[in-house]
Amino acid sequence: MSTLLLIEQVLNGLQLGVMLFLMAAGLTLIFGVMGLINLAHGSLYMVGAFAAAAVAAATGSFLLALAASLAAAAAAGAVIELGVIRRLYDRDHLDQVLATFALILVFSEGTRWIFGSFPLFLEVPDYLSGPVTLFGGIQYPLYRLVIILAGLGIAAGLFLLIGRTRIGIQIRAGEADREMIAALGIDITRLYTLVFALGAALAGLAGALVGAIQSVQVGMGEPVLILAFVVIVIGGIGSVKGALVGALLVGLTDTLGRSFLPGLFGLIMEPAAATTVGSALASMAIYILMAGVLLFRPRGLFGVA
């Protein structure tokens, strides 16, 4: 294993982590502010990817496609918040899980109904495609670098929004005490719709960014949703800072585990067995990480007791 390969894999891990953060940030915001478990978050990710693919096919512009993903996911988020989610805030988590699971089915079949059963085409625009040469001669895809930078930029923007703006103060206050903030004359229902749409837009953007290098298909959101839940459990439910740290931890653990565990086992076992054991363990690595974190910090790294 060379140092360059290690650096390349660390970059890959960061990129996966940043994408997971975009998903997890919305999920954790929604849970933190409204106490809602939203299984349909993966569907909003899918909505973003499909909107981007449709707009890219119609206009040929990747930037327009990204804008469309934000708008479509935010709109879908606002619509389900007004129509369905709003009725769930006072119900227990089981009701929320049931209702949002139903939303997954509705979104999946609805998308299939509109776009058909075959995966859609969405590609990296020419000006972002292909590899660039980094320090030390590492060949790294430009698009993935752009994802890392864009994701970190969005994370910074989100922290500014929550830490420095009036809306951010309301969001934090809503998290702490929703009756009090309502009593102080803040329109809490409007705030909830706004936060939900914001979380949805982030998921939609993640879907569009990732859709360019993955498969835009019905059901694409559910595997990512599971990872996003792992991220927010590790980071501490409700904490955006925790979501960032958790996402990067999960991204790095998953990528580095997949790349190096089979090789490490190869040092002490015969190759066939090492491949089997290494791959199996790599698949479990993030869940072992989660179990380990929960053992020492039952509320996650940045969770509030």
Binding site: P141, Q214, R258, P262, T275, S279
Partner: peptide, 21 residues
């Protein structure tokens, strides 16, 4: 090289880097 990936995996950056190396 011989690699088994996770079922349903969507990101293959790590495997592609291994192929390159």
């Amino acid at each position: 090289g011989e690699v088994y990936t996770k079922l349903g995996q969507t990101d293959y950056a790590a495997e592609i880097a291994q192929i390159r190396a």
